[in-house]
Design a protein around this nucleic acid. Structure first.
Length: 283
DNA sequence: TGCCCCCTGCAG
DNA sequence: CTGCAGGGGGCA
């Protein structure tokens, strides 16, 4: 799925588009995707949009919030009102919506639409009352946000040491330790820190915790800067791909030469997920 | 604290 | 055909 930078990219794009719009209708094309009574959403205005870890929240009037998790293949694509250019109808979209992966469609009072597409159907949308947000099981188990100012090296180290026997790359992806890092940025952060992803958390020196901490922040910020990472599915709120993978050092680059040392990037499996690293740069 | 599973589609 | 894919919940 979209990881922190991808969800953040969607949040920023969507905020510019739908804050202030009123939901007119909701069409649910796949019932398992949506939980809650969609009739509650009718005529509710969008107040603000936020992100926590990889979850997107849309706050509505009447203390209602829509929670979205895109999991592996989810997309949230906004299609503005149809415009006419040179006498022909056109939109911002690069692809036709809805498509066969569209699971839910939100229609706003100005006729613009928000499409929730999800090929693999792992993603979900839930309606939650704001009073329950703090109690929500999913949200309350999420670790600190790595791009917040209070995410210091000390906080990072303390969190990771809760799972000291895990390989560092696997620990980085544990959402209860740190929010928002997934398979792409875990590999990239380890490369930036020059740390072998197979090293156990307990083996890291203070200096290595510091490099790892910087590597996480650097990788996530680079991801946001390039509009996220598109492997197969990710698109931003306007339907555009992200270009972070063009700039990545190791993710998806197995058998390719390392951009730094020229050595060959290797792919291994950790906890059932692919990990990419440069054995020469990362120790 | 590890597996299997939820799904669909694409590459090999 | 098998294996693999930005995630993570439920189960031993």
């Amino acid at each position: 799925m979209p990881e922190l930078p991808e969800v953040e990219t969607i949040k920023q794009g969507l905020s510019k588009k739908i804050v202030g719009l009123k939901i007119k209708d909701v069409q649910i094309l796949n019932s398992k995707t949506f939980s809650g009574d969609e009739k509650q959403l009718k005529n509710k205005k969008v107040k603000s949009i936020w992100r926590k870890a990889k979850v997107l929240g849309i706050d509505l009037e009447n203390n209602l919030t829509l929670l979205f998790h895109l999991k592996m293949s989810g997309q949230l694509v906004y299609q503005g009102k149809q415009r006419f250019v040179g006498g022909h109808p056109t939109t911002d979209m690069t692809q036709e919506m809805p498509n066969k992966s569209t699971r839910v469609i939100f229609e706003f009072s100005d006729k613009s639409k928000l499409f929730f597409n999800d090929q693999r159907k792992f993603g979900w949308i839930r309606i939650i009352d704001n009073g329950q947000l703090k109690m929500d099981n999913f949200l309350k188990n999420l670790g600190p946000e790595p791009l917040e100012k209070d995410f210091t090296v000390e906080v990072f180290k303390k969190q990771l040491l809760k799972r000291k026997n895990l390989p560092i790359k696997v620990a980085l992806m544990d959402q209860s330790l740190i929010s928002g890092i997934g398979n792409i940025y875990a590999s990239e952060a380890c490369f930036d820190a020059k740390i072998d992803p197979g090293r156990k958390v307990s083996e890291l020196s203070d200096q290595e915790f510091k490099k790892m901490h910087q590597g996480i922040i650097k990788s996530l910020e680079d991801g946001i800067k390039h509009g996220g990472a598109t492997r197969a599915h990710f698109v931003d709120a306007e339907g555009h791909k992200g270009y972070f993978l063009d700039y990545a050092y190791v993710y998806g680059k197995d058998k390719h030469p390392c951009k730094v040392c020229g050595g060959i990037i290797k792919k291994i499996t950790q906890a059932g997920r692919g990990t990419y690293y440069c054995p020469k740069c990362q120790k």
